[in-house]
Amino acid sequence: MNIKQNIAVSGAGMIFNPDTGETFTVNPIGAEIINGIKEGNSLKEVQEKISSRYTVEPSTFQNDSEDFINLMRNFLLIEDGD
């Protein structure tokens, strides 16, 4: 699973999909997840890193972050592959 290569994410959490012209806003945690994956980490690694820094049940964060990824998938921001 990868964030599509040409997707642009600003520091403030604005996402721009150049293929469709759509823009999205994500909160700081969303931006951290996206940037973590863009840097080449697996979702699991990103989940571990983020949940170690915040007071959150790992299972809760795992569910929430997977929902978030599914939402990104629905908006065609993620490509699944090798």
Partner: peptide, 8 residues
Amino acid sequence: GGISVADK
């Protein structure tokens, strides 16, 4: 309002 896009 509009935005330039890259759709091939």
